[in-house]
């Protein structure tokens, strides 16, 4: 029970972080990506803050054998640079630049009934399922 609640709480804090930094607002995201226009560098500070905190957590992980509840630390081990990694990232980037939503903010904005997010989220799910049908 406490375990489930902590996962729920993690999701909740994640959403608060996205909201307070305004990554949930497409104008903020597109303004960050608009480096040749009226550039708003704010979101670099979001990434910076998150990376510093997470790097600290990884230091703790180094000194532990297993997580508090899970069986083991599931840290990706793949290292090969594949065409699908780069092509997939490029396709994702095009979609991100079109509407200013990546998956997390898309879900949070849809929960807040933001109109474009209500179109984005079902379509995001469809995109995931199309990939599954084609490649699994």
């Amino acid at each position: 029970m406490i375990r489930q609640l902590l996962v729920l709480f993690s999701g909740f804090v994640f959403a608060l972080g996205l909201g307070i930094s305004e990554m949930t607002r497409p104008e903020k995201v597109l303004g960050f990506l608009d480096i040749f226009g009226d550039w708003d560098p704010s979101l670099a500070f979001v990434m910076g803050g998150a990376i510093v905190v997470y790097a600290g957590a990884l230091q703790i992980v180094k000194h532990r054998n297993r997580p508090q509840f899970g069986k083991r630390f599931r840290i990706p081990t793949r290292s090969e640079i594949t065409p699908s990694l780069i092509i997939g990232a490029a396709i994702f980037g095009i979609g991100w630049g079109l509407a200013g939503f990546c998956p997390g903010p898309g879900i949070v904005a849809a929960a807040g009934l933001v109109t474009p997010a209500l179109f984005f989220l079902p379509s995001l799910i469809a995109g995931i399922l199309i990939h599954r049908w084609l490649f699994d």
Binding site: I94, P103, F119
Partner: peptide
């Protein structure tokens, strides 16, 4: 955008 983000993030 949703289709591209969904498909692209899974491929990548």
């Amino acid at each position: 955008a949703g289709l591209l983000v969904g498909f692209g993030t899974r491929l990548g």
